[in-house]
Protein backbone atom coordinates (compact mmCIF):
# COMPACT_ATOMS: atom_id res chain seq x y z
CA UNK A 1 0.00 0.00 0.00
CA UNK A 2 1.20 3.52 -0.69
CA UNK A 3 0.83 6.04 2.10
CA UNK A 4 -2.72 6.76 3.24
CA UNK A 5 -3.54 10.20 4.60
CA UNK A 6 -6.89 10.62 6.31
CA UNK A 7 -8.24 13.81 7.83
CA UNK A 8 -11.11 13.74 10.26
CA UNK A 9 -12.86 17.10 10.58
CA UNK A 10 -15.84 18.11 12.67
CA UNK A 11 -17.05 20.05 15.67
CA UNK A 12 -15.75 19.54 19.21
CA UNK A 13 -17.83 16.87 20.93
CA UNK A 14 -18.90 14.97 17.77
CA UNK A 15 -16.95 11.83 18.56
CA UNK A 16 -14.07 12.19 16.11
CA UNK A 17 -11.70 10.68 18.69
CA UNK A 18 -13.16 7.17 18.36
CA UNK A 19 -12.80 7.37 14.59
CA UNK A 20 -9.10 8.21 14.86
CA UNK A 21 -8.57 5.40 17.38
CA UNK A 22 -10.09 2.87 14.99
CA UNK A 23 -7.89 4.10 12.15
CA UNK A 24 -4.79 3.99 14.34
CA UNK A 25 -5.61 0.43 15.36
CA UNK A 26 -6.08 -0.63 11.73
CA UNK A 27 -2.69 0.81 10.79
CA UNK A 28 -1.00 -1.03 13.67
CA UNK A 29 -2.57 -4.33 12.63
CA UNK A 30 -1.31 -3.83 9.10
CA UNK A 31 2.19 -3.30 10.46
CA UNK A 32 2.44 0.22 9.05
CA UNK A 33 4.16 3.17 10.57
CA UNK A 34 1.44 5.54 11.77
CA UNK A 35 0.98 8.97 13.28
CA UNK A 36 -2.26 10.37 14.65
CA UNK A 37 -2.29 14.03 15.52
CA UNK A 38 -4.75 16.51 16.89
CA UNK A 39 -4.71 19.63 18.96
CA UNK A 40 -6.35 19.40 22.38
CA UNK A 41 -7.47 22.29 24.50
CA UNK A 42 -9.56 25.13 23.14
CA UNK A 43 -10.96 22.90 20.39
CA UNK A 44 -12.98 20.92 22.93
CA UNK A 45 -15.27 23.88 23.48
CA UNK A 46 -17.49 23.50 20.40
CA UNK A 47 -14.76 24.75 18.07
CA UNK A 48 -13.57 23.35 14.76
CA UNK A 49 -11.59 20.11 15.31
CA UNK A 50 -9.26 18.34 12.95
CA UNK A 51 -7.39 15.07 13.38
CA UNK A 52 -4.68 13.85 11.03
CA UNK A 53 -4.10 10.13 10.53
CA UNK A 54 -1.13 9.16 8.39
CA UNK A 55 -0.10 5.58 7.71
CA UNK A 56 2.49 4.02 5.42
CA UNK A 57 5.98 2.58 5.28
CA UNK A 58 7.62 5.49 7.11
CA UNK A 59 5.79 8.59 8.36
CA UNK A 60 7.66 11.79 9.18
CA UNK A 61 5.48 14.87 9.69
CA UNK A 62 2.32 14.12 11.68
CA UNK A 63 0.48 16.85 9.78
CA UNK A 64 -1.45 16.55 6.51
CA UNK A 65 -1.16 19.64 4.35
CA UNK A 66 -3.11 21.19 1.49
CA UNK A 67 -3.71 18.77 -1.37
CA UNK A 68 -2.39 15.76 0.59
CA UNK A 69 -5.45 14.01 2.06
CA UNK A 70 -6.51 10.80 0.33
CA UNK A 71 -9.70 10.84 2.36
CA UNK A 72 -11.47 13.55 4.31
CA UNK A 73 -13.94 12.19 6.80
CA UNK A 74 -16.21 15.15 7.55
CA UNK A 75 -18.67 15.03 10.41
CA UNK A 76 -20.24 18.37 9.46
CA UNK A 77 -20.81 20.22 6.18
CA UNK A 78 -19.23 23.57 6.96
CA UNK A 79 -16.14 21.82 8.34
CA UNK A 80 -15.91 19.82 5.10
CA UNK A 81 -15.98 23.08 3.16
CA UNK A 82 -13.41 24.70 5.43
CA UNK A 83 -10.88 21.89 4.92
CA UNK A 84 -11.64 20.93 1.31
CA UNK A 85 -8.33 22.43 0.10
CA UNK A 86 -6.61 19.60 1.93
CA UNK A 87 -8.12 16.94 -0.34
CA UNK A 88 -5.73 15.41 -2.85
CA UNK A 89 -6.72 15.45 -6.53
CA UNK A 90 -8.87 12.35 -6.94
CA UNK A 91 -9.26 11.90 -3.17
CA UNK A 92 -12.56 10.98 -1.53
CA UNK A 93 -14.77 13.14 0.65
CA UNK A 94 -16.96 11.19 3.05
CA UNK A 95 -19.54 13.63 4.30
CA UNK A 96 -22.01 13.37 7.12
CA UNK A 97 -24.93 15.49 5.91
CA UNK A 98 -25.34 17.51 9.08
CA UNK A 99 -25.36 21.23 9.79
CA UNK A 100 -24.17 22.70 13.08
CA UNK A 101 -24.28 26.48 13.12
CA UNK A 102 -21.14 28.16 14.48
CA UNK A 103 -21.48 31.09 16.89
CA UNK A 104 -21.03 33.84 14.24
CA UNK A 105 -24.01 32.32 12.37
CA UNK A 106 -26.07 31.96 15.54
CA UNK A 107 -25.52 35.60 16.43
CA UNK A 108 -26.29 36.73 12.88
CA UNK A 109 -22.74 38.04 12.21
CA UNK A 110 -22.23 35.53 9.40
CA UNK A 111 -24.30 33.31 7.13
CA UNK A 112 -24.00 29.53 6.94
CA UNK A 113 -22.66 28.92 3.41
CA UNK A 114 -25.33 27.79 0.95
CA UNK A 115 -25.35 24.76 -1.36
CA UNK A 116 -22.20 23.23 0.06
CA UNK A 117 -22.96 19.80 -1.40
CA UNK A 118 -23.61 21.25 -4.85
CA UNK A 119 -20.27 23.02 -4.71
CA UNK A 120 -18.54 19.70 -4.05
CA UNK A 121 -20.49 17.99 -6.82
CA UNK A 122 -19.81 20.79 -9.32
CA UNK A 123 -16.16 20.81 -8.31
CA UNK A 124 -15.80 17.20 -9.44
CA UNK A 125 -15.10 15.80 -6.00
CA UNK A 126 -15.54 12.07 -5.31
CA UNK A 127 -18.28 12.59 -2.77
CA UNK A 128 -19.83 9.97 -0.51
CA UNK A 129 -22.70 11.65 1.26
CA UNK A 130 -24.45 9.98 4.16
CA UNK A 131 -27.13 10.87 6.67
CA UNK A 132 -25.14 9.39 9.53
CA UNK A 133 -27.45 10.59 12.27
CA UNK A 134 -30.49 8.87 10.78
CA UNK A 135 -28.62 5.63 10.17
CA UNK A 136 -27.13 5.67 13.66
CA UNK A 137 -30.61 6.20 15.07
CA UNK A 138 -31.88 3.20 13.09
CA UNK A 139 -29.09 1.16 14.62
CA UNK A 140 -30.20 2.21 18.07
CA UNK A 141 -27.69 4.87 19.15
CA UNK A 142 -27.18 8.37 17.71
CA UNK A 143 -23.62 8.29 19.01
CA UNK A 144 -22.71 5.65 16.43
CA UNK A 145 -22.49 8.26 13.62
CA UNK A 146 -18.69 7.98 13.74
CA UNK A 147 -18.77 4.25 13.10
CA UNK A 148 -21.27 4.63 10.23
CA UNK A 149 -18.77 6.98 8.63
CA UNK A 150 -15.87 4.62 9.35
CA UNK A 151 -17.85 1.79 7.72
CA UNK A 152 -18.23 3.83 4.58
CA UNK A 153 -14.57 4.83 4.69
CA UNK A 154 -13.53 1.19 5.09
CA UNK A 155 -15.40 0.28 1.93
CA UNK A 156 -13.53 2.93 -0.07
CA UNK A 157 -10.14 1.48 0.88
CA UNK A 158 -8.55 -1.81 -0.12
CA UNK A 159 -8.02 -2.80 3.52
CA UNK A 160 -9.50 -6.19 4.39
CA UNK A 161 -12.80 -6.09 6.25
CA UNK A 162 -11.62 -8.49 8.97
CA UNK A 163 -9.06 -5.95 10.07
CA UNK A 164 -11.73 -3.33 10.64
CA UNK A 165 -13.82 -5.80 12.62
CA UNK A 166 -10.87 -6.65 14.80
CA UNK A 167 -10.14 -2.95 15.34
CA UNK A 168 -13.71 -2.44 16.53
CA UNK A 169 -13.40 -5.31 18.97
CA UNK A 170 -10.23 -3.82 20.42
CA UNK A 171 -11.30 -0.18 20.54
CA UNK A 172 -15.05 -0.11 21.22
CA UNK A 173 -16.37 -0.96 24.70
CA UNK A 174 -18.07 -4.34 24.85
CA UNK A 175 -21.47 -3.05 25.94
CA UNK A 176 -21.98 -0.95 22.78
CA UNK A 177 -20.18 -3.22 20.31
CA UNK A 178 -23.36 -4.68 18.77
CA UNK A 179 -24.86 -1.28 17.94
CA UNK A 180 -21.57 -0.23 16.44
CA UNK A 181 -21.24 -3.43 14.38
CA UNK A 182 -24.62 -2.67 12.85
CA UNK A 183 -23.59 0.92 12.24
CA UNK A 184 -20.37 -0.23 10.55
CA UNK A 185 -22.28 -2.68 8.31
CA UNK A 186 -24.75 -0.04 7.21
CA UNK A 187 -21.96 2.39 6.44
CA UNK A 188 -19.97 -0.29 4.62
CA UNK A 189 -22.89 -1.17 2.37
CA UNK A 190 -23.53 2.47 1.42
CA UNK A 191 -20.61 2.56 -0.97
Amino acid sequence: MSDLNIMIVGVGGQGTLMASRLLGNVAMQLGYDVKVSEVHGMSQRGGSVVTYVKMGKKIYSPIIEKGEADIILAFEKLEALRWIDYLKQGGALILNDQQIDPMPVITGKAIYPESIIERFEDGGIRLFKVNGLQIAEECGNTKAVNVVLIGLLAATTSIDRDIWEKAMEQVIPQKVIEVNRKAFDKGYLLS
Binding site: S43, R45, L81, M103
Partner: peptide, 14 residues
Amino acid sequence: TYEIDNESPGRPPV
Protein backbone atom coordinates in the same frame (compact mmCIF):
# COMPACT_ATOMS: atom_id res chain seq x y z
CA THR B 1 -6.18 21.88 -4.69
CA TYR B 2 -9.76 21.72 -5.89
CA GLU B 3 -11.09 25.06 -7.04
CA ILE B 4 -14.05 25.42 -4.75
CA ASP B 5 -15.20 28.64 -3.17
CA ASN B 6 -14.70 27.72 0.46
CA GLU B 7 -14.86 30.98 2.27
CA SER B 8 -16.34 29.89 5.56
CA PRO B 9 -17.40 31.61 8.74
CA GLY B 10 -15.08 30.73 11.62
CA ARG B 11 -16.05 28.32 14.32
CA PRO B 12 -14.42 29.75 17.43
CA PRO B 13 -14.65 27.76 20.64
CA VAL B 14 -17.60 28.81 22.78
